[in-house]
Design a protein around this nucleic acid. Structure first.
Length: 702
DNA sequence: AGCTTTCAACTTTTT
DNA sequence: GTTGAAAGCT
């Protein structure tokens, strides 16, 4: 069961309504877990399309920005069911990064960027850094990558990074960053951080571009605002302009991405930067029982509060939160699975013939770190219970798909050197290390891309006739393929072209050659064929059945589709909604919900995570506590917290103290005393009082 | 010395 | 399930 399984109320509550109707000034919606924030965003979009002061916008004048493609797709889906396919199709609903791509493709030339620049993924960046930093050590390169990314997220360039570098390590990283910047500029390539940083630079330095976008985007809505980093906030400010109007939706208590640059400063600064900001807390939760919410509120109450907010629900007290103490990891897995089995049997008795209540997809096990999934996988397999582990390798991370993406990127942008290297050597075609080394040197000397260097006259002097022949043959083939890809439109023709290409480069053979196990090779080839189908589908042209209507989609060329690939990282619909138990990290569980949840391994050292004792700052503890809060609020009906007594360490078992967060939940305190009817009346009164208070204070910031 | 084998440890993750 | 380090083998 995924993100919008909660029983949504027929009517919006007063706070939601206020958030939707507030149109004349910037608005911060503090959306507690399960408080219906997507509903608020989509209804606000619908409101903005209607006539009235502050509204009456065209769909293209509204931007809704999310963090993941998945969230964007869901948002579009919800918007579509509210305002129809026609209007929703024109809305700008996308991630920060795809918005960045849009800005750069349209106006990036002001920064000296070709419109068909390529976007590097993390692996490309690693290999460039290895090269630029003169090391073969992947770990070192990754370390630089991490450091550089954090700097970029703070809006620093290499010279600024160098001047504020504190250690020798950082100084070296800053120097490598300088080389890295030069490489990217030469390649006409950008990394993911640039997709925020460069649009920011573009809007800062070029007034006409800034004016253009500020004029076009009359209302910007930002989802998961607590996850924005410094550059994203700056970009938002530039997009909306001095007295711009926007709606930020977020929850300070669910900020769990500080380690990758997200900063709560953006929430703190909002009331200062926009004095007429209206803050609207959404505190009614439509997801969880009171017992679960009480535990969640108790835990998060230990953190210093940016904004006051206490979740409540009228879904009843529910089952008490249970605590499970286990000897070790295996025992914990056994008990958790046994708990699911017996619990499900009870449910089967209670709701015979209602599979929606008893499906395995109602159950989830959440933990801090990926490796904790293992014992649970084993236990579930032993019990013959189907499961899925979220956050596994994505389709686009598979080597065979990356190979093909490398080719496509090269077709889109001949100057994409990492793509060139990948394509030229996969499959092997007589272009080896030696040849590429020489070519690279040559290209570096003349400051041209590898592809450009390929066809220069003077290259012949430096290479053997055979090597040169292989290179030229490759170059000619790429040119030819590019030409064909540019002029092939629509799914059917695209598929033919792609299959022909795979045959030309003997890719299937390459897979079988590189893999001893035939089954594995066959699985890989299957992935390749899936990929071909997927591209073909995106080329459009076929008749699509859309809610009873048949429409012909616009035909795109293979090149058009290839251009957009690096931004799309999931074949979302592939294995959605299977009837299986979910195993997930707490991080990956944000935004999702299940009727029955086990939080596993809730011990000091795991949650809060620490390497050694006492090596953790108060800020880190606070973020870990928010992680616990996120975990608790995933559960709708029942919640089990499980802790270990002993943990395996080498051959020995060591004591594993339970997490401090367990005590903070204060289980057993403040149970149900009120008569349910009495309670309902109290809640109604509270609601009315709150609405009144909100109406009185124009701006409120705590 | 250089290779293989074994053993333990393992943050969180998107674009 | 994978990777890196340390011990063991030739």
């Amino acid at each position: 069961m995924s993100s919008h399984g909660s029983s949504a109320p027929a009517m919006m509550n007063p706070a939601q309504m206020e958030a939707v109707q507030h149109l004349h000034s910037p608005c911060l919606v503090l959306a507690g877990a399960g408080s219906g924030k997507t509903r608020v965003i989509t209804h606000k979009i619908a409101r903005l399309l209607q006539p009235g002061p502050g509204a009456d916008l065209a769909p293209a004048e509204i931007a809704a920005i999310t963090f993941t493609n998945k969230a964007a797709a869901e948002m579009r889906e919800r918007a579509k069911s509210l305002i129809g396919a026609k209007a929703s199709g024109k809305l700008l609903i996308c991630t920060f990064h795809s918005l960045g791509v849009k800005l750069l493709r349209e106006d990036g030339e002001a920064l000296g960027l070709k419109p068909q620049f390529s976007i590097l993924d993390a692996d490309d960046v690693t290999s460039i850094l290895r090269d630029a930093g003169g090391t073969t050590d992947v770990k070192q390169a990754r370390h630089w990558q991490w450091t550089i990314s954090l700097w970029k997220n703070q809006g620093l360039d290499s010279s600024q990074a160098l001047s504020q570098a504190k250690s020798d390590d950082e100084q070296v990283a800053a120097r490598v960053m300088k080389l890295y910047e030069e490489r990217l500029a030469a390649y006409q390539a950008v990394d993911f951080d640039d997709l925020i940083g460069m649009p920011l630079k573009l809007l800062t330095e070029h007034e006409h571009v800034r004016k253009k976008w500020q004029k076009q985007l009359r209302h910007v809505l930002v989802d998961e605002y607590q996850d924005t980093n410094a550059t994203q906030y700056e970009l938002l400010k530039l997009l909306v302009g001095q007295d711009g109007i926007f709606t930020a939706v977020g929850d300070d208590d669910q900020s769990i991405y500080g380690w990758r640059g997200a900063t709560l400063d953006n929430l703190k600064k909002l009331p200062q930067d926009f004095p007429n900001l209206r803050v609207i807390p959404l505190e009614q939760n439509y997801r969880s029982t009171s017992a679960i919410l009480r535990a969640a509120n108790n835990v998060i109450a230990t953190n210093p509060k940016l904004f006051q907010k206490t979740l409540w629900s009228d879904l009843g007290e529910g089952d008490p939160v249970k605590l499970l103490e286990c000897d070790n990891e295996e025992h914990e897995a056994e008990r958790a699975v046994a708990h699911f089995v017996t619990h499900r049997m009870n449910l089967l008795e209670k709701h015979p013939g209602d599979p929606s209540k008893t499906a395995w997809s109602n159950f989830a096990i959440l933990y801090r770190a990926n490796h904790q999934a293992r014992p649970f996988e084993q236990a579930l397999r032993r019990a013959n219970i189907p499961y899925k582990v979220s956050g596994g390798q994505s389709f686009f991370d598979k080597a065979e798909i990356k190979d093909l993406c490398g080719w496509l990127r090269l077709l889109v942008n001949n100057d994409d050197d990492p793509a060139f290297l990948r394509a030229a050597t996969t499959p092997k075609r007589g272009i080896g290390h030696q040849t590429l080394g020489t070519l690279g040197e040559f290209a570096g000397k003349w400051k041209v891309s590898l592809f450009e260097a390929l066809f220069t006259e003077s290259l012949a002097a430096t290479l053997s006739a055979r090597a040169l022949g292989s290179l030229h043959e490759f170059g000619r083939y790429v040119n030819d393929l590019e030409h064909r890809a540019r002029h092939t439109f629509g799914g059917e023709d695209a598929k033919l072209l792609l299959l022909e290409w795979l045959k030309d480069i003997s890719y299937e053979q390459h897979l079988y050659d590189g893999e001893e196990n035939e089954k594995v090779a066959a699985a890989r080839w299957n992935n390749v064929l899936d990929f071909v189908d997927w591209i073909a589908r995106r080329c459009g042209g076929e008749i699509e059945n859309d809610g009873g209507m048949t429409i012909e989609t616009e035909k795109k060329s293979v090149i058009d589709v290839a251009q957009s690939i690096s931004l799309i990282t999931s074949l979302a619909e592939r294995n959605a909604d299977q009837n299986v138990v979910t195993l997930s990290t707490l991080h990956a569980s944000k935004g999702l919900e299940w009727p029955h949840v086990v939080l596993a391994g809730i011990n000091e050292g795991s949650l809060p995570f620490s390497r050694e004792e006492g090596d953790i700052t108060p800020q880190q503890i606070e973020e870990e506590r928010r992680l616990m809060y996120v975990g608790i609020t995933r559960a709708r009906l029942t919640l089990v917290i499980s802790a270990l007594k002993r943990r395996k360490k080498g051959r020995e078992y060591v004591q594993a103290p339970p997490s401090r967060f367990i005590a903070e939940m204060k289980l057993g305190e403040g149970g149900p005393k009120e008569d349910p009817r009495e309670k309902l009346r109290r809640l109604r009164e509270e609601l009315a009082a709150k609405a009144k208070a909100n109406a009185q204070s124009q701006t409120q910031t705590h």
